[in-house]
Design a protein around this nucleic acid. Structure first.
Lengths: 190, 190
DNA sequence: TGATTTTAAGGACATATGTCCTTTTTATAA
DNA sequence: TTATAAAAAGGACATATGTCCTTAAAATCA
């Protein structure tokens, strides 16, 4: 079965017809390493299913540096949620960290889908619920774990991220400095 | 207008009829200080609108102590989201920290509402989106701010929580020890 | 390819935060 | 109300993490 359909089915049931009729709204988009899908300052008009590749989401924190808030991997949606939901300028940038293939739908089309289809409504709600749970787990990790524990968790749960992402981005995702992450990696080697 | 209806309208539009017809599903529940709305280990069957009062959500972290993950105040929903969404045993306990009045709906009734009503579907999705954004902000705070910055933010954004909640719960919510919070409060007095 | 820029590693020291206590204050229950 | 327990404050010291560097390695571009 189609990768995208199978992903959706896993969230909430959808018939072949419902799925096929929605296809006209989705466009293919290919990104090279370093290309941006969403840019800070612009209203985010799109949400994308990641067929292949990896992206990172980052924003400017108050300390004149960037915080990586998310690594987005294949078989997932990505967007700048706050900007997309509220249709306000995005605080976040989403950038491919390797060759990436997306299926993109724009805000208005998604609203149309929601308005005329209960299954798509269901998918929208169930997906948002899933994202909430991911974010809750992330907050719990940030709240309770030491730098080393957080790094080991990432190593265990998302080993491919550690291979693909820059050290400084991993550090900021874990809420530590590169100096600290360097020490941790040093310790683990031993 | 009714406090609950006005809250819902603020999330997504709903007609008087749609609202009235759903009223049969909601039950009043009063909690005394210390009473639990949701208990760890049980499947969470309910979600509640808080008409009045305050609750805290906490769970056992791996370090043989409790982490307060959320303070729930009036004019909001509360539930143990993961347990409610997936209908699995709850890792969290939700407890009133003062006299509290709830409007409670059970899982099956909510599914019925979703199944037969697009406006309720919309409310469900839009509400979950809002909760996601709150959690995202919380994670950002935990990731980028020092203990003192986090405390000052809470003081500014939710001053009533600082009055009502126990010091140790505030400390754990902010991801610091009571020793650290004690120092911060000492500094601020000066 | 070689030159330039960016990223990562790690030394030396500073600081924030944690751990382990004891004391004081506040809440709770008999 | 008094006795008991729980919570909060805070001293002394330990440790994790941050800041500010310099050097080494890797990536990028002309």
């Amino acid at each position: 079965m189609d990768q995208f359909k199978s992903f959706l089915q896993n969230i909430a049931p959808i018939t072949d017809t419902e799925f096929e009729e929605a296809q006209i709204y989705f466009k293919e988009l290919k990104l090279k390493k370093g290309d941006c899908f969403i840019e800070q300052g612009k209203v985010c008009k799109h949400i994308a299913f990641i067929k292949k590749g990896t992206l990172k989401t980052f924003y400017n924190n108050d300390k004149s540096s960037e915080t990586t808030s998310c690594f987005c991997v294949e078989n997932n949606f990505t967007t700048s949620y706050k900007s997309f939901i509220l249709q306000t300028p995005s605080a976040q940038t989403i950038q491919a960290i390797e060759e990436t293939e997306l299926l993109v739908i724009d805000f208005e089309s998604l609203q149309k889908l929601y308005a005329k289809s209960i299954p798509w409504q269901n998918i929208g709600r169930a997906f948002t619920e899933r994202e909430y749970l991911v974010m809750e787990q992330y907050a719990s990790t940030l709240n309770n774990e030491t730098a080393k524990e957080k790094y080991l968790r990432l190593l265990k749960e998302q080993p491919t991220i550690i291979q693909k992402a820059a050290i400084k981005d991993i550090a900021s995702y874990l809420g530590v400095t590169t100096r600290t992450l360097s020490r941790i990696r040093q310790e683990i080697i031993k």
